[in-house]
Measured scan of single mutants.
Amino acid sequence: MSSSSWLLLSLVAVTAAQSTIEEQAKTFLDKFNHEAEDLFYQSSLASWNYNTNITEENVQNMNNAGDKWSAFLKEQSTLAQMYPLQEIQNLTVKLQLQALQQNGSSVLSEDKSKRLNTILNTMSTIYSTGKVCNPDNPQECLLLEPGLNEIMANSLDYNERLWAWESWRSEVGKQLRPLYEEYVVLKNEMARANHYEDYGDYWRGDYEVNGVDGYDYSRGQLIEDVEHTFEEIKPLYEHLHAYVRAKLMNAYPSYISPIGCLPAHLLGDMWGRFWTNLYSLTVPFGQKPNIDVTDAMVDQAWDAQRIFKEAEKFFVSVGLPNMTQGFWENSMLTDPGNVQKAVCHPTAWDLGKGDFRILMCTKVTMDDFLTAHHEMGHIQYDMAYAAQPFLLRNGANEGFHEAVGEIMSLSAATPKHLKSIGLLSPDFQEDNETEINFLLKQALTIVGTLPFTYMLEKWRWMVFKGEIPKDQWMKKWWEMKREIVGVVEPVPHDETYCDPASLFHVSNDYSF
């Protein structure tokens, strides 16, 4: 037999072997998808029940369902290793196997995995149920939502704001400190077992692309791009910072340095994350009609249902689908009040099986009107990829998912749209002054938050990498806050605090 014939037969044999492996992989994935749908849905439903009704029974049910899901994933991840990716030609099959071969938290021992889940659930519970009591009246206690958040959004009393700011960190942050220390250790162990340098590197892996249509993007490039983007917006932020400082000097004349940092408790919310609520103090042309339409919403008797129905109309107007019937029947759109304790931070849920929901303790404000559009943007994205195989139902990356939500809320905030839905009067006219007011309001929300987020994530990356010793977490946190964000702590904090974890995203294990 000629050498060319042998070569042809060899190629046929290799192709047949690849085809056999690929067919086996497809069969394996079909079985996995069928089983995963049910187990993931049960786990998601148990998590939803806990988040909307925080009880010991629900946390136990959530843990049990989560353990079943984790055990299943660990088993299936091991089985998926049997299919070598280099022998799979079908890109859809390869991407699913690649996702499943990534072990995630299931790489930890059973004891450590359970401990990590306990830590995460405990931190979430402390954050959502933590109360601050009035020292003069111990029976008068406030949760973060709505009590403390209400103070931080609306109060102009310097000392009341300081009390709310400090009490939240003292009551909740200190409880979270030992848990967060354990969390860092276990998450790093999980990341390294998955061949990442640390948990920050694991997060950045979400943005990594290897040879898809000839395109590559590394975790290191992400760090470079983040640094570059921050340097680009820094001059604009510094101008905004100086303008806000001048306006705060008028409101709090004896508390603000004309050349120094801004006190952290005066920036519009509990964390200084969004400066939106400073608009009334900083509006350049106050004689113009108010483009913050909160009062109009209240006057027109809007409620949470109306807010979300208007958001749905907005999405339908640009060619996107209505929310499902189940969305309206199962979402929690208002604070249950004293009936039950719930996690009030707005979140969009894709539970699986076409079950999409939003959890939000909606208030009738323009801020929540825009947040509703943001969260519904997440749901629209979830619905758009719902037909994909189970392992591919995700956003391109976390940042893109947020961008989908944010672009919709930005569009909904324009005076033209607000006028079209009757929240600005029919005779409202846009001119240079109203446009400047609008742009300032947008800058308070968007530009003001960028250094906050950059600095927070930089601190977390450094902590996970071990570049900040545990006994210097708070020292470095406030050094970076002053240097990068231009914000100063109103009272000193020692290493018993854990100020970063006083933010939902940190205590609940979300990256930005």
Score class of each variant (00 low, 15 high):
residue 73 L to E: 11
residue 28 F to L: 14
residue 75 E to I: 00
residue 49 N to L: 01
residue 67 D to L: 02
residue 51 N to A: 03
residue 67 D to W: 05
residue 61 N to Q: 04
residue 93 V to H: 12
residue 37 E to Q: 12
residue 74 K to I: 04
residue 19 S to F: 02
residue 37 E to W: 14
residue 20 T to R: 10
residue 57 E to T: 04
residue 50 Y to G: 09
residue 68 K to M: 11
residue 50 Y to C: 08
residue 84 P to S: 09
residue 57 E to Q: 06
residue 46 A to L: 12
residue 22 E to C: 10
residue 64 N to T: 10
residue 84 P to C: 11
residue 34 H to T: 08
residue 26 K to D: 00
residue 23 E to S: 01
residue 72 F to E: 13
residue 89 Q to C: 02
residue 62 M to R: 09
residue 69 W to C: 00
residue 90 N to S: 00
residue 56 E to G: 07
residue 84 P to Y: 11
residue 19 S to M: 09
residue 38 D to I: 14
residue 21 I to K: 12
residue 59 V to C: 04
residue 49 N to V: 02
residue 38 D to G: 14
residue 68 K to C: 11
residue 51 N to R: 08
residue 65 A to I: 01
residue 79 L to I: 00
residue 39 L to T: 04
residue 79 L to Y: 00
residue 26 K to Y: 11
residue 45 L to D: 14
residue 102 Q to F: 03
residue 38 D to N: 09
residue 39 L to G: 02
residue 31 K to D: 15
residue 35 E to K: 13
residue 35 E to C: 00
residue 61 N to C: 07
residue 63 N to S: 12
residue 22 E to V: 11
residue 42 Q to M: 00
residue 50 Y to V: 09
residue 72 F to K: 02
residue 56 E to V: 02
residue 76 Q to F: 00
residue 89 Q to L: 06
residue 57 E to L: 03
residue 22 E to K: 12
residue 38 D to W: 14
residue 28 F to W: 13
residue 22 E to T: 01
residue 19 S to Q: 12
residue 64 N to M: 05
residue 37 E to C: 12
residue 72 F to H: 00
residue 75 E to N: 00
residue 74 K to C: 02
residue 93 V to Q: 13
residue 35 E to A: 04
residue 65 A to T: 12
residue 67 D to Y: 02
residue 46 A to K: 10
residue 84 P to K: 11
residue 98 Q to A: 05
residue 45 L to I: 04
residue 72 F to G: 12
residue 74 K to N: 08
residue 23 E to H: 01
residue 22 E to F: 02
residue 27 T to W: 00
residue 51 N to S: 12
residue 98 Q to R: 06
residue 19 S to A: 09
residue 35 E to G: 08
residue 39 L to F: 05
residue 29 L to S: 13
residue 62 M to F: 09
residue 63 N to I: 08
residue 30 D to T: 01
residue 74 K to R: 04
residue 61 N to L: 03
residue 84 P to D: 10
residue 93 V to G: 13
residue 26 K to S: 00
residue 102 Q to S: 03
residue 51 N to L: 10
residue 45 L to V: 11
residue 39 L to C: 01
residue 46 A to F: 12
residue 27 T to Q: 12
residue 45 L to N: 15
residue 23 E to F: 00
residue 92 T to G: 00
residue 37 E to H: 12
residue 68 K to Y: 12
residue 56 E to N: 04
residue 89 Q to G: 05
residue 26 K to E: 04
residue 50 Y to W: 03
residue 95 L to H: 03
residue 57 E to C: 02
residue 27 T to E: 15
residue 40 F to I: 12
residue 19 S to D: 13
residue 61 N to R: 08
residue 19 S to E: 15
residue 69 W to K: 00
residue 69 W to M: 09
residue 93 V to A: 13
residue 95 L to Q: 03
